[in-house]
Structure formats: structure tokens, C-alpha cells
Computed example of a mutant assay.
Amino acid sequence: MHATHSSGKGRGHGGGRGFRGAGGWQQADLPPADDAAAWLTGRLPDDWFVGAPTITVDREEIVIIGELAAPEGSDDNSAAAAAQGRIGRFREETREARMQIADEAEARYGRKVAWGASIGETKAIFTHLAVPAMTRLRHDERRVLDTLVDAGVARSRSDALAWCVRLVGEHTDEWLTGLREAMAEVDKLRAEGPDL
């Protein structure tokens, strides 16, 4: 999501790249994607998913995950295998249509599109981006990553950092959701404000 700046640099205060709207300079050249979920919900075939799909958008990617109807006649022991089979079938049978919709969405929103499907607890995301994120870490922060590597939790510092991000996301989901909603409201109020 958006970076937090403790100094004024990078936000139009001597950082060389002035503030240019929602998301700062990082998103200045991206087309807005405020209506992406609505557009995609209207564009997707009605018979693909049970209910509306979950659609999330960031700076690089739009991820569409839809719930599929559960296969009939599978018992508790074979339910996960049946769900994986149904998801695999959906992936193959809808490939061409999904590619066409993705091309249209990428042209409209300037972001790649990833697809996924779920049945109950079984979920698969078919193809999605793994975007590098550069950061500078101080000694104590590097020690955290090195401990995870030394303990075998991660293969490298970059794997350890990704593991930390996933862990924070899992344990602070409600807080992050509130933060995203608050940022969206600030962006809305900023857009409604006077042009200076």
C-alpha cells in the first residue's frame, strides 16, 4: 500500500518529486481504478461464480477470485481433491475468455490481471505477479531476517521479508482494512476539494 514518510521529502517538500494526487508520485501516471470492481463484476459472465467475486487492486495488479459451486457427491475425505479438480477444470475451460477480459481490463486500468478461484477452504490463484520491493534495513532489522533464515523458516532474506509481510497481513487484516478505507475517504475528500 502507501508508504509512510516521517520526513517531508517525497511529498512535495524538497524531495524532487512533487505530490500529484492520490498515492503520491508512485501512482501519478496510473489510470484510476476506482471503478475496477464494478466494471469487472459487470463484465464477467454471470454463470462463472457463486455470488460476486472478490476483486482487489493495487498499483501493479488486479486480482479476481471467484467462488465456484462445490462438486456434488464428495465426502469429507475427498472434498479437497474434488474442489482442486473443479478449480482446475474452471481454469482450463475459461482460459480464452479470461485472457480477453484481462486484455480489456489491462488496457482500461494499466494493471495486469490475475485470476483465482475457491471452493470453501480450497483456493488457487492461477497466475499473478511477484513484484520486487526494495528497502533499506538497519542492523536489528537484518538480524530478524537472518534469524528466520538460520532457523530454516526462509531460504533467504527476501523470503524472510515476504514471510514477515504475510504474517503481518494475517494478524492485522482488520486494522489494514480500516486503514485502506480511511485512505480512500481522504482521497475522495481531496478530489472534492478546491483546485489550488
Rank of each mutant, 00 (worst) to 15 (best):
A182F: 06
T177N: 10
R157N: 03
R180Q: 07
D140M: 02
L148N: 00
A154P: 05
E170H: 08
D187L: 04
L179F: 15
L179K: 15
D140V: 08
L196C: 07
E185V: 06
A154H: 08
W175P: 03
V149A: 01
A160E: 00
M183C: 08
R157E: 05
R143F: 04
D150T: 13
V168E: 04
R190L: 07
V144A: 07
L176G: 02
D146L: 06
G152T: 03
R190W: 06
A160K: 05
V168I: 13
L145I: 01
L196R: 15
M134N: 11
M134G: 09
A154D: 01
L167V: 04
P194R: 13
A162R: 15
G178R: 10
E170Q: 13
D140E: 10
T172M: 12
L196Q: 11
L189A: 06
R142V: 02
T135K: 10
T135V: 14
E192M: 11
E192S: 11
E181S: 14
A182T: 08
V144I: 15
P194V: 02
S156I: 04
V131Y: 10
H128Y: 10
D159I: 01
S158D: 15
A154L: 07
H128E: 12
G193M: 04
T172V: 04
R166H: 10
V149G: 00
L189W: 08
P132G: 09
P194K: 13
L137C: 05
P194I: 09
R190N: 01
E141K: 11
R190G: 02
M183F: 08
V149C: 02
A182Q: 03
H171C: 02
R142F: 05
V153S: 14
E192D: 14
V168K: 04
L189M: 06
R142Y: 06
A130K: 13
V186K: 09
P194N: 06
R180D: 08
T172D: 13
D187M: 03
R190A: 11
R190P: 03
R143N: 10
R155H: 14
L189G: 01
L176D: 04
A191C: 05
H139G: 06
M183A: 11
M134R: 06
H128D: 06
A130Y: 09
D159Q: 14
D187N: 00
D195N: 14
T147R: 13
A191M: 06
R166W: 02
D150Q: 15
V186P: 02
H171S: 13
V153A: 12
A154C: 06
E181H: 13
E192K: 15
V186F: 09
T147M: 07
D187Y: 05
W163K: 00
A182S: 12
A162P: 07
E170L: 15
R155C: 01
A184T: 11
H128V: 01
W175M: 12
V131W: 12
E170I: 05
E192V: 03
T127R: 09
W175A: 13
S158P: 05
T127W: 01
L179H: 13
G169C: 02
L145K: 08
D159L: 01
H171V: 00
D173R: 15
L167G: 05
L176M: 09
R138L: 09
L176I: 07
G193R: 09
D150K: 14
H171R: 15
L137N: 11
W163Y: 14
